[in-house]
Every structure is written in structure tokens, then in C-alpha cells.
């Protein structure tokens, strides 16, 4: 190998260590007792007891971790699916129909993409508490199903992928606009829709500020919010250190798995957005 090649591989390996080390630490730490967490070297196992720790995570506080997991799946799953459907329909409409106000709608959507979502969380809270939606499941779900970025991606994809001839042919055959969308268009737009769903799912799963301001009932918390309450209370209740680590490990399993499997697919979907961006 040439020296430049060796240098390149060395750099790439160092980078891999940097990105993987914290995750590796988490894997090791999730098998340790509270005492070992502080008393033993962090990067090696000591008396592994993962099952015992995990059962503690799930049983602590009347099994509240179950509620948090269920809530996260609900917010991210239902929110992501509805957001995808709405974004698909809106993006499709902006791509294939010519109507008055089309450009205006698209500009507003773009402005929505550029507006920071957390700058919006506090105003949302003020409004939702005014109309009595604060501290309900709706408070997190409703904002989660609006994805301007999804509309943007779907419009670009539909412009390139939905052939006008196909729509004309279907219309000649007597199909209504909704039927065409529900059967032909959704199938054609599947790659874009999957991308939007993944983005939105990860976004909602990772969201923290919105549930933090909206929810006061612990039973409605998603995992992210729940774990920070454990972490914050660990000063007073040391055993929570262990539970926080164990819970953190469990919480990244589903997303990490999805990330590894879907990485390839995601990448091809991303191209749609960045080429025109």
C-alpha cells in the first residue's frame, strides 16, 4: 500500500472509533451495577448483569418505562404515518396541478422548512394551553403530523416521477382524482413517502422540547423526556444512574437497528432533496 493510502485508512478508522466509542461505552455500562458504573474502568465489562438491569428499568416506578416506550411508538408511528400521507397529498397537488395560489402556498411551505421547530414550541404551548389541548396526547401528535420538509420532498419527487400521461390515461378511463391518487400515485411515490416517513419518525422520536413544554403528566411522556427526569433525579436517588444508562441503551436499539437496515434506502431518497436544494 502507498503511504497516502495507509494514512487515509488510519484516519477513517480513527473517525469510526470516535463515532462508535460512546455507543460501545453505553453497551458496557448497561451491564454494570450502580457501584461498578462508578468504580470500574468504563470500557471493559465487570460482572455483567444486563438482564437484571433491564428488568429493573422496566419495573421501576410501576413500570413507567413501558408507558414511555408505548408513547414514543405512538407519537412517532402514528404521527409519522399521518404526516407522510398529508405531505404526499400536498406535494402531489403542488407538483401536478396548475392553480391560482400554487406558488404562494409553496413559498409559505418553504418558509416553514426554514423556521426552527423549537422556536415554534413555546408559541404552540401558549396557543394549546389557551384552547385546552396542553397536557394531552394531541398536544404532541398534532404538531407532529405537519411536515413542510416532507411536502417539499414530495413535490420534487412527484414532479419527476409522476408522468402526466399516466394521469391522463386514468382520467380517460373515468377514474376520479382521489381514486387516481389512492391507487396509482401513492404507489409511484413510494420511495419519497418512505423517506418522509423515516425522517418524520426519527424527528418525532428524538423530539424533546415539544413534549417538555406540553406535557406535565409523567404517564404521557415519550422515552426521551422520561429518561431526563431519571437523569435529573439521579443526584438524590443514585440507583437512577444505572436505570438511566440501561434505559438509554434500550431506547436507541429500535432506531439504531432501523438506521442500519434502511441506510441504503434512505440514501437514495435523500438525493431527491439535495439535488435541487
Amino acid at each position: 500500500m502507498k503511504p497516502s493510502r495507509i494514512l487515509l485508512v488510519a484516519l477513517l478508522t480513527v473517525a469510526a472509533l470516535y463515532f462508535l466509542l460512546p455507543v460501545y461505552w453505553l453497551v458496557v455500562a448497561s451491564t454494570k451495577s450502580s457501584a461498578d458504573l462508578f468504580g470500574t474502568f468504563g470500557l471493559w465489562f465487570s460482572d455483567p448483569r444486563w438482564l437484571d438491569n433491564t428488568s429493573k428499568v422496566f419495573s421501576y416506578g410501576d413500570g413507567i418505562f413501558w408507558s414511555w416506550t408505548f408513547n414514543s411508538v405512538l407519537y412517532a408511528g402514528v404521527g409519522g404515518a399521518l404526516a407522510t400521507l398529508l405531505a404526499g397529498a400536498a406535494g402531489y397537488a403542488l407538483a401536478v396541478y396548475r392553480f391560482r395560489g400554487r406558488e404562494a402556498v409553496f413559498k409559505v411551505v418553504l418558509a416553514g422548512v426554514l423556521l426552527p421547530s423549537t422556536a415554534l414550541a413555546l408559541p404552540l404551548y401558549l396557543l394549546f394551553s389557551k384552547v385546552g389541548l396542553a397536557n394531552t396526547y394531541w398536544a404532541v401528535l398534532i404538531p407532529s403530523i405537519v411536515s413542510p420538509f416532507g411536502v417539499y420532498l414530495c413535490r420534487i419527487y412527484a414532479e419527476a416521477a409522476v408522468p402526466a400521461e399516466m394521469l391522463e390515461a386514468a382520467r380517460v378511463d373515468g377514474a376520479g382524482e382521489w381514486r387516481i391518487f389512492g391507487t396509482l400515485v401513492l404507489r409511484t411515490m413510494t420511495p419519497a413517502l418512505v423517506t418522509v416517513f423515516l425522517f418524520q419518525f426519527v424527528g418525532i422520536w428524538n423530539n424533546y422540547f415539544l413534549p417538555l413544554v406540553m406535557l406535565s403528566d409523567e404517564r404521557k411522556y415519550p422515552i426521551t423526556l422520561g429518561l431526563t427526569t431519571w437523569q435529573a433525579a439521579a443526584n438524590r436517588i443514585p440507583e437512577l444512574n444505572q436505570l438511566t444508562v440501561g434505559g438509554a441503551f434500550l431506547s436507541i436499539l429500535p432506531l439504531a437497528a432501523a438506521m442500519l437496515v434502511l441506510q441504503r434506502y434512505w440514501r437514495s431518497g435523500l438525493t431527491q432533496g439535495s439535488v435541487k436544494g
Binding site: 477513517l12 473517525a15 469510526a16 463515532f19 462508535l20 460512546p22 455507543v23 461505552w25 453505553l26 426519527v202 422520536w205 428524538n206 424533546y208 422515552i223 426521551t224 423526556l225 429518561l227 431526563t228 437523569q231 438511566t244 438509554a248 431506547s251 436507541i252 432506531l255 439504531a256 432501523a258 438506521m259 442500519l260 441506510q263
Partner: peptide, 20 residues
């Protein structure tokens, strides 16, 4: 390697902060 570099994106920001 790409998968290794991309993995942290699947870790929620608060969890990453707790971790670090």
C-alpha cells in the same frame, strides 16, 4: 464505515447528551 458514522444520528439528542 458509512454505517458506523451514521449510527449516532439514530441516537436522540437528549440521549446523546446523557451519554456524553
Amino acid at each position: 464505515l458509512r454505517a458506523a458514522y451514521f449510527l449516532p444520528y439514530g441516537v436522540p439528542g437528549v440521549i446523546a447528551s446523557i451519554l456524553w
